[in-house]
Structure formats: C-alpha cells, structure tokens
Design a protein around this nucleic acid. Structure first.
Lengths: 216, 216
DNA sequence: ACAAAAAAGGGTATATTTCCCCTTGTCGAA
DNA sequence: TTCGACAAGGGGAAATATACCCTTTTTTGT
C-alpha cells in the first residue's frame, strides 16, 4: 500500500473556493495529498497545539486572512514550529510583507497569479531543497540588505498622534483629546516630520495610510 | 454521446492558481465543463470579438484584474453581449463595486470565501433561474435604492485638484501647477468642502483615498 | 544624582479656511 | 434679440491653523 508515501500538505486560506480548488490541483499533481485545510491562522494554530506536526511536509499559508493573518501566524510558527516548511501565498507584492514573511521563516513566497507549473516546481523545490524564491522575491531581498540601516521606529504615543492627525481634528483638539499640551503635540509633529522626511500634515496622512497605521 | 449536454463555463481571472484550480472544482461538480480561461478582461473581450458566445452558459468574472478589470469588462459586456450570464467573483465586499457590477448586468456576486456548496448552488441558480443574490448583496441593493438621491459628481478639474491636494504642495503651488489663479483653486476647495461635507484638507485627502481618486 | 527623554512654552512666518463680492461667457427661454 | 440664470474664474481681507525656531521645566531610567 503506497498511499502513505505521498507528501502531506496543509492549506491555510480563508477563501474556501480557492483552498478547496487548490486541493484538487495539488491532488492532480499525483505525489501530494492535502491532509488539512484551515480558514485562518487561529484555527491552524489551535490544530498545531492539539496535534503534532511531524508528518506535515509543507504548509501553504495565505497572507491576507481575517482573525489571524499570515504574518502573525508566521511569527507564531517561527517560535513554536520552526521546522515546519511554509510557502506563503498572496495576491499582493508588498515588499514589506514579503520581507517580513521571509525573515520569519517562510521558505517561499508565491503570488496567486503564479502558473500551476511554477507552483508545482516551488512545492517540489521547498520540500527537496528547503527553499524556493522567485526573481521578484530575490530582488527584494537583495534590495533590502543594501538599505536596511535606517529603520524607522515609532513610539506608541506617536502612533496615537498619527491616528488623530488622520482626522479633521486640529492639533489643538488632538492635544486635548490626548490630554497633552498643544506644544507637546507640536513636538511630536516636528519630530515625526523630521523622522519621516515629510513637510506637511498631508504627508503624514499619506505615510500613515501607506504604512497601514490607519485604514480608509 | 452525452458530453455535449454539459453546461459550458468560461473563467476570467488573473490568478492562474485560482482559475486552474477552480476549473477542477467545477469539473468535480459533474454537470459543467470549463471551455475557456482568460487572465484578464482584455483577452476575454478579444476572444468574444473573434468567436460567438452562443454556447456559453456562464461566465465567472473576477473583479480585480490587471489590464482590464471586472468592472470595465462588465460594462463592455452590457453593451455588446447583454445575454451572457455573468457571476462576479471578488475578495472584496466594497458596496460601490458590487452595486456597479449588478447594475451593469452581473447576475450574481460571490465572495471568494464562499463555500464550494454555495458556489455550486449559485451556478445552478444563475443558469436555471437567471440570478443569484446572497444576503449581503440583496442587503446592499435595498440599502441603495433607499438612499440613491444625492449622488456626488466631480468635474474633471476638481479631480485634478484633488489629486494635487493629496501631495505636500501648497495651494499656491497647485495653482501654478494647474495654471490657474490661487483664488480659483480656493474656489474649488471651498465648493468641494461643501459638496463632500468636509472641513479640512485632511478630510479631502481621506475622501480621495477612500474613493480611489488617488492611490497610496 | 545625573543625563536623557518627555512635556510644555514663546514667538513668528506661512498656509489654510472662511465669507462676501466681481467679472466674463454661455445658453436657453421669453 | 435680449434678458436672466448659471457656471467658471478671480479678488480682498480677516480669522485660524500649521510649521519651524529655540528655551525651560518635569519625568525617568540607571
């Protein structure tokens, strides 16, 4: 009986239509079987805490999910199941996310518009050789090591201020909302302008949205 | 020979992994076959212009695609192939998009996290009865007819102004950029504040991003 | 106890917002 | 044809809000 020789794969994706279809695609490759499917990181982690994962050869992890997203899940895996091989799947090619997934231990990062052929190759490659990077991802990694000296870190109060700055409140109103002097707020503003290399509140709003500090 | 009795479906989706997997899922339902797959609206329309579509029973149309997106494709279909039955597929539940797809003739709108069972039901329902609306969509339609009196329409110049307002330029700079008097710009600003019920430039920026006038 | 942050203040120059009025051109109705 | 309504473009001036200096007081961590 040869069934047990198949590679065992787990899919974590909230798009049921996708994950269930993907299971069929993977089956059609012949050498693999999907042993579990989960619709977000939370239920996946719950499963891992109840069961051991020794027999799992590969996890296909969606990045954008409700409840617990791919990034948070990856962080948990890094600490708790560092040996689990993961390929991240996503529709977006946001450099920041990709880098974070990789540095948290993802062995590959595929966009969902990848062809099934490449997909199959990536699966094989990760299981056999341990990793698979597309040109897109390698490019980003190189790009990153060449400019990863200045990382901007924002303090909690600054984040709260930024969120308020992304409303129609005046600085004075923000100050009273945060129970601080307008002058303190002015200090936050000035240091942020400096740090983020911007010159106006508009720039701050654009920065906040781009970096997902606020949502629109 | 009974093969020709199967319902014929076309998939239009840029996520190859998804569309190819979905084809397998649809095949597994038994009564359907996927006769074509396209990766964006452009190549789909090119196909329709070369071939007649009389034998196509259903189109599954992704909303977010490069080159030509689902909405533009739907608009073309409305004018050129109004009898083609279309179910829109999307990851986002943006009310505006959903309403537009429906008013342009989509017979159903499904989120990609729909279960395969509902998906199958929707396909059957659209082919047999002509439409399928989930509660989400029906709710939006009701919501819409109840409040579709005041629609905001922006003029071309106003849109250009808004785009500039979403940068760190001052109004004076925007004026010279647009070859207008600062006073005219001020007029645009004021009428927009009025029309959009906002009070500050920050509000304008947030509006522009929310309504996809500018991208971040 | 001491240096480093965090919080607050003073002052000033621009930028932004608000309000009310003027000109010009277009276009349809009287 | 002429009149009036209406939209686009422009103006003056005043009140606030922002942005940028530079200094002082309070807290805080070690």
């Amino acid at each position: 009986m040869k069934t047990n020789s198949k590679r065992k794969i787990i899919i974590v994706d909230d798009h049921l239509l996708f994950s269930q279809s993907l299971e069929l695609l993977i089956k059609s490759f012949g050498d693999y079987e999907v042993i579990e499917r989960f619709e977000n990181g939370k239920v996946f982690i719950d499963f891992l805490e109840e069961n051991n994962s020794n027999e799992t050869d590969l996890v296909l992890l969606d990045v954008n999910m409700p409840v617990l997203d791919g990034l948070s899940t990856m962080q948990w895996l890094k600490d708790n199941k560092p040996n689990l091989k993961v390929i991240a799947l996503s529709v977006n090619d946001d450099e920041e996310i990709i880098i974070k997934m990789i540095t948290n231990g993802a062995k590959g990062y595929l966009l969902k518009d990848t062809s099934p052929e490449i997909f199959k190759e990536a699966i094989e490659c990760v299981i056999e050789k341990g990793f698979y990077f597309t040109e897109l991802v390698s490019g980003m990694l190189i790009n990153k090591v060449n400019s990863d000296n200045k990382k901007i870190c924002l303090k909690e109060k600054e984040i709260v201020f930024i969120k308020h700055a992304c409303t129609e409140m005046t600085y004075k109103e923000i100050a009273s909302e945060m129970c601080l002097s307008p002058k303190t707020i002015d200090g936050y503003r000035e240091s942020l302008f400096d740090k983020l290399e911007i010159k106006t509140r508009i720039g701050l709003v654009l920065y906040a949205i781009k970096h997902k500090i606020v949502f629109v």
